[in-house]
Design a protein around this nucleic acid. Structure first.
Length: 557
RNA sequence: GCGCCCGUAGCUCAGCUGGAUAGAGCGUCGGACUUCGAAUCCGCAGGCCGCAGGUUCGACUCCUGCCGGGCGCGCCA
């Protein structure tokens, strides 16, 4: 059974047009594609097409006439209810009650799998997100990227593709050196030495923790370091280890699990960086300038060429990152998605330029920018800076408001918009949070089933009858349930996870409305069976939907 | 100066890739529990979609120019 209704309607429309042409009812001309869209208002219909208007010129017919000709051709299909042709020339299509009723059965059959598609030829997708420097704990922006990335991965998987979640660890270069230097300084302090703190060092309190951790566990190995340089390297390596472990556990707590943690260092050590340079060179995109190697990124849309090897022979960060992305290409992914932080957006042009230079098709590389998060605390803006050590960590946030609320809040806004995250509000008014609204709907349904059990009312979906569902509240609810797979598909292709939170909100709202209007457990057995079936379907979809968001669906609250 | 994101109800934001009379939550005000969970529901009020042009049957949506807010513009990562 085809799950995406919109695609079914599109097919029906195509066939209707062909049939009409075959019968000579409309001209056999080259026609524009029959687009399917959603009417602005529900009362107009479930789906609409502007086809009659768009083909007016070619057909030399008024849109209303075309619409009326097509109407019977569309109406003869089982899943189509009413078809209306209105004012400017829209053809509005309603789904039939029979069809909606049949969707309830589908939901009960598929249960946890409802909404999930199976593809014969799934695309392998690489989704890289968070990829914060291993120089400290994860902050709030990383938390947003984590929620968005993981949810997006869930959505793409639900459409039938295969997603590898990946975290790129920048465990190489100057920042790591500075980290080592800072830790060494704190380490010396622990041993009673006093020296000036490194200028660009990391001031955060956690650096002392790392120093203490190293002192507690690795004193022996430290005593074997022969000089300062070796000592710094050692500190850096242990500190990275410590931080990555911390980041990993923060993310796991947040329900985010990676397929792979990719170390930048390995690219330098196994020759990938050099190979990538040679590869780019072989494609004539590298030139020499003052002893440096420069990538001609302007040939691929960047506004400036970029140095990839310094005059002292050391590769830049960009070259390693290109090597990393070459590695992804070589692993055979059909789609590569990066979610990066707002302060990296100037970087996108040169990287996607490199992808083009390596012959990777443009539309198969997507970079999403997870916009900034302003943490607001009682009306005050909280500044976040790792360097200054004045940031609030992701783990602090989870302590404050919990995983469910945090994930939901980060996902509920479009990825493009800056997010004002009012911590005090999220915590204080938690009972009025949208996430609780959704969870409440779920718990409420579970409660009905507990009540039924108590009263020894059996659950008999087979006895459900369509006639009890012919009322506005049930119809709205069934339409939403039927559209779940379509919502997933739309959100996944647009790479916009926030659409699912909006959808679930509408579903919960429709359910609460249904609940106030209709008594589920009544003396009429067939009606009870019908409404229990409907409620169960809502419960399944809520649970599956919340699952995609990584938010729990409690049975009682 | 250049580039990216944003500007929609008092506040926070949707608006499904150009469609019909612009929506929701919170907040304000007014209603609804002897009955399956009132963490709920119903109703009222609230708008020149930043401004000005352009594209067309039709623009919150696309183009151009301004105004305002945020971020970036390293051979740091």
């Amino acid at each position: 059974m085809e799950l995406i209704i919109k695609e079914q309607i599109a097919e029906i429309l195509e066939r209707a047009i062909q049939d009409a042409q075959r019968d000579g009812a409309i001209a056999a001309a080259q026609l524009p594609a029959a687009r399917i869209e959603y009417p602005r208002e529900e009362r107009f219909g479930d789906y609409a097409t502007p086809f009659a208007m768009e083909s007016a010129k070619v057909l030399k017919k008024s849109p209303l006439d075309t619409g009326n000709i097509l109407k019977p051709y569309i109406e003869k299909y089982e899943c189509v209810g009413q078809v209306n042709v209105v004012k400017p020339g829209f053809i509005n299509i309603f789904l039939s009650l029979e069809y909606l009723f049949s969707c309830l059965k589908t939901i009960h059959e598929e249960k946890d799998a409802y909404g999930r598609n199976v593809k014969r030829n799934p695309v392998r997708v690489n989704l890289e997100f968070v990829s914060a420097n291993p120089t400290g704990p994860l902050n709030i922006v990383s938390a947003r990227a984590a929620a968005i990335g993981d949810t997006l991965a869930n959505l793409i998987e639900a459409t039938g593709d295969i997603v590898d979640r990946e975290f790129y660890v920048n465990d190489y270069g100057n920042q790591v050196f500075l980290l080592g230097l800072s830790v060494l300084h704190r380490y010396k302090e622990l041993n009673g030495e006093t020296v000036a703190f490194p200028e660009d060092g990391y001031h955060g309190e956690y650096v002392r923790d790392i120093a203490q951790y190293i002192k507690d566990n690795f004193s022996d190995e430290i005593s074997r370091c022969s000089d300062e340089q070796e000592l710094i390297d050692y500190m850096a390596r242990r500190a990275v280890e410590y931080n990555v472990r911390g980041q990993k556990s923060d993310l796991e707590r947040f329900n985010v699990n990676y397929r792979r943690w990719f170390s930048e260092r390995t690219l330098h050590e196994n020759g990938s960086v050099e190979n990538t340079l040679a590869h780019l060179d072989s494609r004539a995109t590298i030139y020499d300038e003052d002893g440096k190697k420069v990538f001609r990124s302007t040939a691929f849309g960047d506004d400036k060429d970029r140095v990839v090897v310094r005059d002292d022979g050391r590769p830049t960060y960009l070259l390693a990152d290109i090597a990393y992305h070459k590695d992804k290409i070589d692993r055979g992914y059909g789609l590569i998605i990066d979610i990066c932080c707002p302060d990296h957006h100037g970087y996108i042009a040169r990287l996607s330029g490199a992808m083009k230079a390596m012959g990777f098709r443009e539309e198969r590389f997507r970079v999403l920018l997870a916009q900034q998060v302003n943490l607001v605390m009682e009306g005050e803006l909280v500044k976040m800076s790792k360097r200054l050590g004045t940031f609030s960590t992701m783990s602090d946030l989870l302590d404050e408001i919990g995983v469910d609320v945090a994930r939901y809040f980060f996902i509920m806004r479009s990825i493009d918009s800056h997010l004002d995250f009012d911590l005090a509000l999220a915590k204080k008014q938690s009972s009025e949070n949208p996430v609780f609204y959704l969870q409440y709907a779920h718990a409420r349904i579970c409660s009905i089933f507990r009540e039924a059990e108590k009263r020894r009312i059996p659950y008999e979906p087979a006895r459900a009858e369509m006639r009890f569902l012919d009322n506005p509240e049930s119809i709205v609810l069934m339409k939403l349930l039927a559209k779940f797979p379509e919502e997933i598909s739309d959100a996944a292709t647009a790479l916009e996870p926030h659409r699912i939170t909006n959808y679930l909100l509408r579903l919960a709202q429709a359910y609460h409305r249904f609940y106030t209007e209709h008594r589920v457990l009544s003396d009429e057995e067939a009606q009870t069976a019908t409404y229990m079936t409907l409620c169960d379907a809502v419960r399944i979809v809520l649970k599956n939907g919340l699952g995609l968001l990584g938010v729990s669906a409690p049975e009682r609250m």
